[in-house]
Simulated assay, not measured.
Amino acid sequence: MTKIAFIGLGNMGSGMCANLCKAGHEVRAYDLSAEAVAKAAERGAKAAASLADAVEGAEVVISMLPAGKHVLAVYFGPGGVADAVAPGTLFIDCSTIAVDDARTAAGKADEGGFLMVDAPVSGGTAGAEAGTLTFMVGGPDAAFDKAKPLLDIMGKNVFHAGGSGNGQAAKIANNMLLGISMIGTCEAFNLAEKLGLDAQTFFNISSVSSGQCWSMTSYCPAPGPVPTAPSNRDYKPGFAVAMMHKDLALAMEAAKASGAAVKLGEMAERLYDDLIARGHADLDFSGVMKDLKGGL
């Protein structure tokens, strides 16, 4: 049994925390939302009244936070995790943040004598609940080896992407591809419909042809073919437009810093930015389909 502090109990963190509890670990859970903490306690965690309370005696600290500034503040700000735990403690940050922020955090952890990995995830809330997430992990071998048994509880696929920050690099490149492919999938279904093909017929053909992709077969943006997809719940997320835009913005920032050409990524970022500007931040990112059909 490992003593774990879990910080950040939102849509993703809540399921991840619950799976660690199910596996028999002692988990102290903390979030700014008292309601989220109470729900974590109902699922087996020990409710923590503060960050300091959560990390007291922790061997491992796991976090799922909104942005890099939150990660740096929680771990290394005044009264943060690094001030309260023993050297050698393992930090596993599962947030999706800028590559540079992840590398800054890793440097600070190393200076303090801590082990740290950046371990962003793919798989959405369903994967978090089911323990089938994909983890893309950046950090030293020793830190990865220590983190992997816990990541295996929360996920089905755990990849060591290389040094610190490489987990974030993998995540934002993957999600840029996802954003682009979802827009293309929406446009293809819309075109097929305009030309007289119903969604199921086009799905049956394209899902076993060269246009096949995850956005089609697992998360189809056209209502009908994939019953579990948000398209069958009027595009209730799922993975919200605001979250996709955040990841695309991180990808554009990284592309600019590295000199990578990402023309389709730039177009995708602008499209999701426009949806936010029109008041659709909480729509599922596959809601591009609804917009193409004039439903927004």
Rank of each mutant, 00 (worst) to 15 (best):
G211W: 04
C186K: 02
C213H: 05
F202S: 03
C213M: 09
M182P: 06
I172S: 01
M216H: 10
H160V: 01
G238M: 06
P237L: 06
F202G: 00
K246M: 13
L197K: 01
P221E: 01
V226T: 05
V208Y: 03
A192S: 06
T185C: 07
T228R: 13
T228P: 05
I183D: 02
N157Q: 09
D247Y: 07
K171L: 10
G184Y: 13
V226E: 08
L177V: 15
S218E: 10
P230D: 14
S206L: 12
Q168A: 15
S164P: 07
G184H: 09
F239Q: 05
F159P: 02
S181N: 14
P227Q: 10
P223R: 05
G165P: 02
S207F: 14
G179M: 03
D247H: 09
G163F: 07
V241P: 05
E187L: 03
R233Y: 11
M182V: 14
I183R: 03
T228E: 09
N166V: 10
G155E: 03
N174S: 04
C186V: 08
G184S: 09
P227H: 13
A240K: 03
A161M: 10
Y219E: 04
K171Q: 09
S207V: 12
T228G: 07
N174G: 04
L178I: 15
G167L: 11
K246N: 14
N166K: 12
Y219Q: 01
M244G: 12
P221V: 00
F239M: 05
F159T: 11
N190W: 02
E187F: 12
S210C: 08
P237N: 06
N175T: 04
F202N: 01
I180L: 10
G224Y: 00
P237I: 04
M154K: 03
A240E: 04
A169F: 13
F159V: 15
G224T: 02
H245E: 15
V208C: 09
S218L: 11
N174D: 01
S206I: 15
P221R: 02
I180C: 11
S209F: 10
S207N: 14
N157T: 09
V158L: 07
F159W: 03
C213S: 10
Y219F: 00
L191K: 07
F239P: 06
H160I: 00
I172V: 14
A242T: 12
I180S: 12
A199W: 00
K156V: 05
I180R: 07
T228H: 14
S164K: 04
F159L: 12
T217C: 15
Y219R: 01
T217M: 15
N232G: 06
M243P: 08
R233G: 13
G211T: 14
K171F: 00
M176K: 00
G224Q: 02
F189A: 02
A222T: 01
N175H: 03
F159I: 08
G162T: 10
G179V: 13
